[in-house]
């Protein structure tokens, strides 16, 4: 699969990565190279193979419905906001979003 600049532009947009127009052709070449190499997988007939997402052979473990006060719980607004690059009072802030 050979990627063109327009596809890289679209993917970069989805990934929220700013890519300068001038960079698109180089990136397209590079990504095309990687994808071309990846396509060796098409040699393998996998039509009857069930996909495997992970290797843990166990059922999902569930948690009790309790409000916790360890680091999995809330009630720690100061810590939650401590690293915020934009903050007003106890809110995070971002440039205004118009819906």
């Amino acid at each position: 699969m050979s990627l063109d600049a327009a596809t890289v532009r679209r993917i970069a947009k989805l990934a929220r990565l700013h890519v300068a127009e001038a960079e698109l052709p180089r990136l397209a070449d590079e990504l095309s190279g990687i994808l071309g190499w990846i396509e060796q997988l098409n040699e393998v007939d996998t039509s009857n193979v069930p996909p495997l997402a992970g290797t843990m052979q166990m059922a999902l473990r569930l948690r009790d419905d309790v409000i916790t006060d360890d680091i999995t719980g809330g009630g720690r607004a100061d810590e939650i906001l401590a690293n915020a690059p934009g903050r007003a009072g106890n809110f995070f802030t971002v440039p205004k979003v118009v819906e």
Binding site: V66, I67, T72, G75, F92
Partner: peptide, 14 residues
Amino acid sequence: SGAATAFGAEPNTQ
């Protein structure tokens, strides 16, 4: 997570 779900709490406290 173990954070509470109650409605109307102060911002970012839950």
